[in-house]
Simulated scan of single mutants.
Amino acid sequence: MIDAFSPAYFTQKGGTYVGDSRELLAALPDNSVNLVMTSPPFALQRQKEYGNLDQHEYIDWFLEFAKLVHQKLKDDGSFVVDFGGAYMKGVPARSLYNFRVMIRMVDELEFFLAEDFYWFNPSKLPSPIEWVNKRKLRAKDSVNTVWWFSKTEWPKSDITKVLAPYSDRMKKLIEDPDKFYTPKVRPSGHDIGKGFAKDNGGAIPPNLLQISNSESNGQYLSGCKAVGIKGHPARFPAKLPEFFIRMLTDPDDLVVDIFGGSNTTGQVAEVEGRRWMTFEALPEYVGASAFRFLDKGMTPEAMKELYERIVAGESIPLDEYRQQSVLTL
């Protein structure tokens, strides 16, 4: 599928590639990808160590990738992008860059906005510091916009795969509707009766996704610590790509992340039985991301060897290291 490039590491389900995502995307066949799930570097005013552009340059830069994504998606495929909010430089007024991206994606690249989602991270630290902590002019910024784009008006989707657990009150209502609810006609004239008291296995989730991003002791960070390197500074939690991978794809579908980072998307796709590919420009981030696919029990020496081999440009089958970790348990 992408024969001109060798993965930095790979499993039976997928692989991670080091390079410019535009070149890697161009090497994929058109109409071959079911889902692109990604979180690009945000257009922040303060430079981050993982790279970000000025807000005015950012939109044109991102649309270069999006144009290629449109070509590679299947007709029923989806493109889900997590964008963090930002302020204008030097003033407590919001930037509209993430909304401008969304509008240009639809107007110029002929994507459809299937739905807008909002990721609420209750564990996010108060920011921006100047306007929240110091001057106390604004509430802390705890919500990211997550745009779900599609190539046509009818992308593949099944909300029943991501049903939310019922509340305790709903569980009681399902058990005994007559005891807890008397049907009434709404002011709108709509009579809902008792049909909603049926047990459907869970509740339809809202488009506000409440997911904490507070991982502190997972296999990825443990591996980074053992090797003596810093983890990627902008990791999103597994529950975020998990939601969209489950809702928008089936087993053996192809999931691609064009800004791989620490490869949360690939890890989730692997667990969910999807084929996957991730692209990341920095070999150091790719080397560390391999720790997500290792079992507990691998020695720090073996992890460091794996990291150094990946950074040096080798193509590593991770099954070799998985077998080592099993033998040490």
Rank of each mutant, 00 (worst) to 15 (best):
E175Y: 07
D30S: 05
E110G: 05
V256I: 13
G228S: 11
A93T: 09
K124F: 15
M277V: 06
G201V: 05
K239H: 05
K171H: 06
Y17M: 01
G297M: 14
G201N: 09
L306C: 05
R46H: 14
L109I: 13
I316E: 04
S142V: 06
A312M: 02
N34Q: 04
N121Y: 04
T182Q: 15
K198R: 06
R46S: 13
D3N: 13
L24W: 13
N121P: 08
Q45N: 14
D30E: 13
R246I: 00
Q267L: 11
K171V: 09
K67W: 09
L63D: 12
K239Q: 12
P41I: 06
A302T: 01
F5R: 03
N213L: 10
L28E: 12
I211S: 01
Y50Q: 08
Y17S: 01
G266V: 03
S127G: 07
L35P: 09
S123W: 05
L306E: 07
D191S: 06
G202L: 09
N217E: 15
L73T: 12
M37W: 06
F149A: 03
P206W: 11
L306R: 03
P205V: 01
L96P: 04
D257G: 09
R100W: 09
L25P: 00
D178I: 00
P237K: 08
T11W: 12
H190W: 15
